[in-house]
């Protein structure tokens, strides 16, 4: 059984009387342990697709089966539980809470855990160590470089042992060194057996994935594996 099955997924926005079809009928399957890049020009609908995959948004129509369960029509609290348990997010702008230390940021998902996590603090420390930030745990985001912040965000995304890591332009704000580090970590996580989906418009970054899905005008225009 596939991890993700999308059937004819549509997302329509109306802004000031103007209707915009961000997704015009997307069908695709993504299996467990895949390493997928979603690519496309800006406005192509790739971010909308990412948001729906991450249960941050709901489709207007169509069906989204996640782990064999239809999540397209779940209530907001149930979606929150899915995000907490199964989705690890990495954002372009890192999205760390500025008032908290790196360690507290990594531990934040525990606050909303629906099932107890043992030794959460030790686990968070281990994750930070894993992304090479052992000595930066007490630092706040402003005291970290962009690359370091994104590594904290990756550690946070792993906190609840999610089924998928969803990364939205994870290297978009980074210099080439930081971008390489982040991609290397994502690759390493994939090799450990994680499912990773990331959005990018950068061909070089996209080429790192094993499978590239190209989106244009709300439709899948190419889906190529290695």
């Amino acid at each position: 059984m596939e991890l993700i099955q999308l059937t004819n997924l549509r997302k329509v926005y109306s802004i000031g009387g103007l209707t915009i079809e961000a997704l015009a009928g997307v069908s695709l399957d993504i299996g467990a342990q895949e390493f997928v890049a979603i690519m496309g020009p800006s406005g192509s609908g790739k971010s909308t697709l990412m948001h729906i995959l991450g249960c941050l948004d709901s489709p207007t129509s169509g069906r989204y089966m996640f782990k064999g369960k239809d999540v397209s029509s779940l209530r907001s609290d149930d979606l929150a539980a899915v995000r907490n348990q199964d989705m690890g997010f990495v954002f372009q702008a890192y999205n760390l809470l500025p008032q908290m230390s790196a360690l507290e940021n990594v531990m934040l998902p525990l606050s909303y855990a629906t099932k107890p996590v043992r030794d959460g603090r030790r686990k968070a420390e281990g994750l930070l160590e894993h992304v090479g930030l052992k000595d930066r745990m007490k630092n706040r985001p402003v005291e970290l470089s962009g690359g370091e912040q994104q590594r904290v965000a990756i550690a946070r995304s792993l906190m609840m042992d999610p089924s998928i890591i969803l990364a939205d332009e994870p290297t978009g704000n980074l210099n080439s060194k930081g971008a390489r580090e982040v991609i290397d970590i994502l690759k390493a996580l994939h090799e450990e057996g994680k499912t990773i989906i990331y959005v990018t418009h950068d061909d070089n970054i996209g080429a790192q994935a094993e499978r590239v899905i190209r989106i244009r005008d709300g439709l899948v225009v190419a889906d190529e594996g290695d």
Partner: peptide
Amino acid sequence: TREIGIRKALGARERD
């Protein structure tokens, strides 16, 4: 607002 968005992405429910 952004903090609220981040917390929600990490699993915060409305009541949280």
